[in-house]
Write a protein that binds this DNA or RNA. Structure first.
Length: 566
DNA sequence: GCCGTTTTCGGCCCGACTGTTTTCAGTCG
């Protein structure tokens, strides 16, 4: 690992090193209770808004899940990029073994054994060994295991990453299309509203024997098939079905919704109350009596805590607040009074102003902000001052015929030197201005951060659009230092956008929460280019909820008058 | 390795399924 300047160690890097340690410990076969704290500490570091680098040991120990040992190691990471125990472990265990952890049906024990018995160091080695039938020669392994490994390698090489919400919806529709309406819930990370989804988890009330033939008919492959659960591959994605009865539906749903960290935490809460919690209900330790729950609400009540919305179930402090009865009341779709990001045929959109106004009326919106691109963005056929003025007058005409008010705005380009793509005089004339980066994604952190900061500080800019520029599964965020952007936005009162496009979902939840806590206002914009995309608002709302937002945190829950006053 | 309204020591979430086994380890969620 490279030696790094103390100022430059990011939380993500610290978390990465701690995770790396956890993975090596797993392969080494160490005590699982010694391994988990590394992952837990990594999670805690990653959700901090301020860098952990530079904090003293006392301050680190005050964080949940970080004790003396790991605090000291974080100190070492700041200095050297690594720590002594990690280096010692790396001397024993080859780094390359870690990639094998990504294979289905291959875990740390298997990796350790194959490494020691067959000298397997990489996925390539494993592939060769399996093809030459050297796996089945190892005691404890057989032909089935060998076949499973080859299939896992095949999938690994296809590199099917996580799905966008839109892709997940397609898989969900394929799977639930064969289930009786009203008899199932999609759980897992899909229900928690993550920006990307790994696999699909479904709880159903239908009986296993009744539903299984319908499910296998739409599946590529049956992965697991027991009496209580069936695992399939549909559209190349894993879909897990759990069978429940009405009495246990609440406990089953909570279990399958997760997250894993939340389940661990909530089960510890149950333990301290003298219960054991599993997917069937609460078992009283003393009597062994099982208490069942038809819904999650009853289960939370019995644990003497607030109902925790699925979007918060990450063990990021929500359990403590729920026990204290102090969870925030999260923003929800009906709170939304308008959309603050849309494009028309005037630039790269496929919809007219009239079509947008009709859609706004249908949605019961009070307003929709029209934000076509500025002319500096050549690829999107951007608008110059003249075109914008003509658009403004067409907006005025359109507004006479509709309840939903179209607001005139622009998505002005933040050029590579931080200047804006339109003159300030023009921007001052508009209702609201979004400023976004659309080029120069490769700039160094300091450069691109200062570039965005100059937009944040510009008197005409109201909102910074898609602040990290990521395209899920296709383009990583640019190197912007969001902590600095959030801090400055709070100072000058510029809002940050939660872009609701399922391809962006930008800002992500951790930064939304940091912005909210600093008092930064947020907007949710669908970035619609066609009328069907206004319904993507639901993705933005889900993301805002994951960022702990209440209605007052989100500008487009304001009335039109309230919005314009802001 | 972390943690404490049972505890500063002794716990740590809990169960389903597969594969290779004569009773269970490993993986997964």
């Amino acid at each position: 690992m490279e030696r790094s300047d103390p100022q430059q160690v990011t939380n993500r890097q610290v978390a990465g090193v701690l995770t790396f340690m956890g993975q090596l410990l797993e392969i080494s076969g160490d005590d699982p209770f010694k391994i988990r704290p590394y992952y837990r500490a990594a999670q805690e570091v990653e959700r901090q808004s301020e860098p952990v680098a530079g904090r003293g040991e006392e301050e680190l120990v005050a964080l949940r899940g970080i004790g003396r040992q790991i605090a000291r190691k974080i100190g070492e990471i700041e200095e050297t990029g690594t720590f002594r125990e990690l280096d010692e472990l790396r001397a024993e265990i080859p780094d390359s073994l870690i990639e094998l952890l990504a294979l289905d049906s291959v875990g740390p024990k298997t990796i350790n054994l194959l490494w020691k018995k067959l000298g397997i160091l990489s996925v390539g080695d494993l592939d060769k060994a399996a093809r030459n039938h050297r796996i089945r020669a190892v005691k404890g392994f057989g032909a089935k295991k060998e076949e499973n490994i080859l299939r896992a390698i095949d999938r690994f090489q296809q590199k099917n990453g996580r799905m966008t919400r839109a892709e997940a919806d397609a898989i969900v529709n394929a799977a639930t299309g064969v289930l009786l309406p009203g008899t199932f819930t999609v759980a897992g990370s899909y229900r928690r509203g993550l920006s990307t989804v790994g696999d699909i988890d479904i709880v159903t009330l239908e009986e296993r024997d009744a539903v299984r033939p319908r499910l296998t008919a739409v599946a590529d492959e049956v992965i697991d098939d027991g009496s209580r659960k069936t695992s399939l591959r549909i559209g190349g994605r894993r879909v897990d079905i759990r069978y429940a009865t009405p009495e246990i539906y609440g406990a089953m749903l909570m279990y399958l919704t997760g997250s894993k960290a939340f389940n661990i935490r909530i089960r510890a809460v149950a333990n301290s109350g003298g219960y054991t919690l599993n997917e069937y209900g609460l078992e009283e330790r003393s009597s062994g009596r099982l208490q069942t729950f038809a819904d999650e609400e009853g289960l939370f009540r019995e644990l003497k805590m607030d109902y925790v919305p699925p979007e918060l179930r990450e063990d990021r402090g929500e359990v403590e607040l729920a026990l204290a009865g102090a969870l925030p009341s999260l923003v929800d779709l009906p709170d939304v009074r308008g959309d603050l990001h849309s494009h028309t045929r005037w630039s790269d959109g496929r919809q007219t102003l009239e079509e947008i106004a009709v859609r706004g009326d249908e949605l019961g919106y009070e307003y929709i902000l029209i934000t076509d691109h500025s002319s500096s963005l050549g690829v999107a056929r951007g608008l110059d001052t003249d075109a914008l003025q003509r658009q403004q007058s067409e907006i005025e005409h359109t507004n006479r015929r509709h309840t939903c008010t179209l607001l005139s705005g622009v998505e002005v380009d933040i050029k590579s030197d931080g200047a804006l793509g339109l003159p300030g005089k023009m921007l001052a004339d508009l209702d609201l201005v979004i400023a976004s980066v659309h080029s120069g994604f490769q700039q160094e952190e300091d450069q691109i951060t200062r570039r965005i900061l100059s937009a944040v500080e510009n008197e005409h800019v109201d909102i910074v659009g898609h602040p990290t520029g990521r395209l899920l599964g296709r383009r990583p965020p640019y190197a912007v230092d969001l902590a600095r952007v959030i801090e400055r936005a709070a100072e000058v009162g510029t809002a940050l956008e939660i872009n609701a496009s399922p391809h962006r979902l930008d800002l992500d939840d951790i930064y939304i929460r940091q912005a909210k806590e600093k008092g930064v206002k947020l907007t949710i914009g669908t970035d619609s280019h066609r009328t069907s995309e206004f319904s993507n608002m639901r993705y933005g709302i889900t993301l805002a909820r994951r960022g702990w937002c209440t209605a007052p945190d989100i500008l487009n829950t304001s009335t039109l008058a309230g919005l314009l006053e802001w």
